[in-house]
C-alpha cells in the first residue's frame, strides 16, 4: 500500500480498525491517513465493508479493535469528550439520505442547529434558508422529503450536512441510484462546497471515473484491508493486482461480453 508522507497534517488517522459480525470479518485491520482539507475517496466492490468502515468512523458502529484519531485525539468509548467534539465538527451524508420524513425540508436542515447548538432561532432560520438556497432548494422548503425527487433529497441531505459548517464530512455512497448526469452533479457539488467551506471529505463509492477526477487521494478497500492509498494518478499507474482488477473492470466486462458474443464459454469471477 502506498502510504502518505509522514509530514502531512493528518486530520484523521485510522490504524488497525477491525470489525466482525459473528463469524463474518468485515474489516481486518484498516489503516487510512486523511490529510486536513483533502477529498479522499474509499473505493471498493459492493459488500467489501466500505459503509461499515464509514460507520465505524462516525461512531454508529463500534470497532472491535484499532484506533481512530481525529485532529490528534483518540476517539474511543472512554473518551466521551473527544467523541462529542468529533460529532460537533463532523457531518455524515447517509447513502439513503436519512432525512426525517415527518419534517419539512427547512425543518430537516435546521434540525442539527436546533438540537446541537444554542444559536438563536432567527439565525438558525437564516442559515438553514441560506443552505437551501445554495443547493437550489429554497422553493421547496415547505415540502416533505417524500414530495421531493431522489436528486432533490440528495441535495437536501447535503444541505443538512453542511449547515453546521463542519470540518469533516463523511459521504456514504453519495451517488447511489443516480443517473450519470446527476452523479456528476453530486460530485461537482461535493468539490464545489469542499472548496467553498474547506472541509475535509471522506467518500465511499464505487464510481471510479468520477472519484478519480474529484478526489485528492483514493484508497481501495478489499478483503477487509486498504490495499492502496495514493493520488488518483498513482492509482491509474499502480500495478497492484487488486487495483488493476478494480480499475480495469470495464475492460474485463468488454472482453467477457465480446467472448460471449463469439459463442465462447466464459467463467466469471463470481463462478470461480
Amino acid at each position: 500500500m502506498s502510504a502518505p508522507t509522514p509530514d502531512l497534517d493528518l486530520f484523521l488517522d485510522i490504524r488497525g480498525v477491525h470489525k466482525r459480525f459473528g463469524d463474518n470479518v468485515v474489516l481486518a485491520g484498516i489503516d487510512l491517513a486523511v490529510p486536513r482539507g483533502s477529498v479522499i475517496t474509499v473505493l471498493g466492490k459492493s459488500g467489501t465493508g466500505k459503509s461499515v468502515f464509514l460507520k465505524c468512523l462516525a461512531g454508529i458502529v463500534r470497532p472491535d479493535a484499532g484506533e481512530i484519531c481525529f485532529d490528534g485525539h483518540a476517539l474511543n468509548a472512554s473518551n466521551a469528550a473527544a467523541r462529542a467534539e468529533f460529532r460537533r465538527r463532523c457531518s455524515y451524508l447517509f447513502q439513503g439520505n436519512a432525512l426525517l420524513d415527518s419534517l419539512t425540508a427547512l425543518e430537516n436542515v435546521a434540525l442539527p442547529l436546533e438540537q446541537t447548538t444554542q444559536i438563536p432561532n432567527r439565525e438558525i432560520r437564516e442559515r438553514s434558508l441560506e443552505a437551501l438556497r445554495q443547493l437550489d432548494l429554497d422553493k421547496h422548503r415547505d415540502r416533505y422529503p417524500s414530495q421531493l425527487s431522489g436528486g432533490m433529497q440528495k441535495r437536501l441531505a447535503l444541505a443538512r450536512a453542511i449547515v453546521t459548517r463542519p470540518e469533516l464530512v463523511l459521504f456514504d455512497e453519495p451517488t447511489a441510484g443516480l443517473d450519470p448526469i446527476r452523479r456528476n452533479h453530486v460530485f461537482e457539488m461535493i468539490v464545489k462546497y469542499q472548496r467553498q467551506f474547506g472541509f475535509t471529505a471522506v467518500l465511499v463509492t464505487h464510481d471510479l471515473p468520477e472519484a478519480l477526477v474529484a478526489s485528492d487521494q483514493v484508497a481501495l478497500l478489499d478483503a477487509g484491508r486498504m490495499q492502496f492509498q495514493g493520488t488518483p494518478e498513482a492509482f491509474r499507474l499502480s500495478e497492484n493486482p487488486m487495483v488493476c482488477a478494480f480499475r480495469d473492470s470495464s475492460h474485463a466486462l468488454r472482453d467477457t461480453v465480446a467472448a460471449l458474443r463469439r459463442g465462447e464459454t466464459v467463467t466469471t469471477e463470481e463462478e470461480l
Binding site: 460507520k55 462516525a58 461512531g59 454508529i60 462529542a84 460529532r87 460537533r88 463532523c90 457531518s91 455524515y92 447517509f94 439513503g96 436519512a98 432525512l99 426525517l100 420524513d101 434540525l111 442539527p112 438540537q115 446541537t116 453546521t164
Partner: peptide
C-alpha cells in the same frame, strides 16, 4: 421505521440526543 431508514443514526451522528428528541 426511523431506525430502519437510518433516521435515528442521522440524529446520533449530528450529536443530537435521540432520547430527548
Amino acid at each position: 421505521i426511523q431506525r430502519n431508514s437510518e433516521q435515528i443514526d442521522a440524529l446520533e451522528t449530528m450529536g443530537a440526543s435521540t432520547h430527548a428528541y
